[in-house]
Design a protein around this nucleic acid. Sequence first.
DNA 1: GCTTGACGAGACTATCGGTCTCGGCAATGA
DNA 2: TCATTGCCGAGACCGATAGTCTCGTCAAGC
Lengths: 192, 192
Amino acid sequence: MDTKEPRPHTGRRRNEAARRAILDAALDLLADADGAPVSVETIARAAGVGKQTLYRWWPSKGAVLLEALTDRAAQDVPAPDTGSLRGDLRALATATFDAAQRPPSAPALRTLVREAARDPHLADLMRTFTESRRAAVRQILARGRDRRELPADRDIDLLVDQFYGFFWYRFLLGHAPLDATTAEKITDSLLR
Amino acid sequence: MDTKEPRPHTGRRRNEAARRAILDAALDLLADADGAPVSVETIARAAGVGKQTLYRWWPSKGAVLLEALTDRAAQDVPAPDTGSLRGDLRALATATFDAAQRPPSAPALRTLVREAARDPHLADLMRTFTESRRAAVRQILARGRDRRELPADRDIDLLVDQFYGFFWYRFLLGHAPLDATTAEKITDSLLR
DNA sequence: GCTTGACGAGACTATCGGTCTCGGCAATGA
DNA sequence: TCATTGCCGAGACCGATAGTCTCGTCAAGC
């Protein structure tokens, strides 16, 4: 499919610098807020940009925030292949916990989830973000089951929800660590 | 400690009917909203009460919502004692999942969590609510460990977070069931 | 009957997401 | 060169919301 339009584009082009400034400002504020809400006004002002410029290219505040996070943070889903189910799951857990523990992605993600709790639009956008993560775990588990490393009667969807449920619970509440040791413990606990 | 004050109370007394009307209206709206925000105006109007009456007795909207939920819903923490670890945990899981699945507590709780994501005051109030639940699971697990039904090397806090992480994850996302079968499966999975 | 303080009502402030409009400016094509 | 197109920053504006303040009223006690 070509991007050609019936009439060639005329008029001023999109200012790439403004786009970058918006995403950078959004990520900075997101990371700095650590849970506290981030307003559109603040983003626009910090980026030296009019609000309309923001709404010309993104449908909502949540869309900006999400793109700011996924654009900068390593958004590639880890898909380790160590040869063993336990190794794969532990590698993914370690990578996930690690990424979720150091700035700027950690506070930014926390803020984003808080925003999503009230913004159905953003919640919807985040679904694809999280779904790809879920799929990665599901794939690791399915491969392990095919290799007979996981009993065939174990419910893979249950395990996926156990893994991410545990992760989000600790990540959002922050009452207990999400370090490498925990990654190993949760892996052992799930594959026991 | 006596509630006597230096000067006896004079003036009009608190209207108990208004208090009840506020809590009832709040719970109704909370249950009816199912995740959507509930405004103070709406509560006051539904209760036939001025906003100031509400703020005279509660410090914030969140406090009203939380009291409305804990006041009416069965706030007693289930503490089953079936004699076996597996039986206790399954009973608690079943009770929890069951309560979280039918109105009015289910939609009300969902709304409350959404509100808490943006209201630090409410989030703080909810911590005690959830902590008592966590303690119940912790106690069941500790008792099981004492009875040698659970290996001594298993991390109880990890299991508690696995259980409630799984619960909240499914409850809030609603992508998979939280029925009696699931309660049995998660119990088996945790105690495997 | 006087004081006290809760009551319903609603005006008011401040904040926020999102829309609308304005004058200016850059890219294009004639 | 110059008109058209469409993005730009700026900011007024709208509607919703949490929370405060004030007012006249009403009930409880002295």
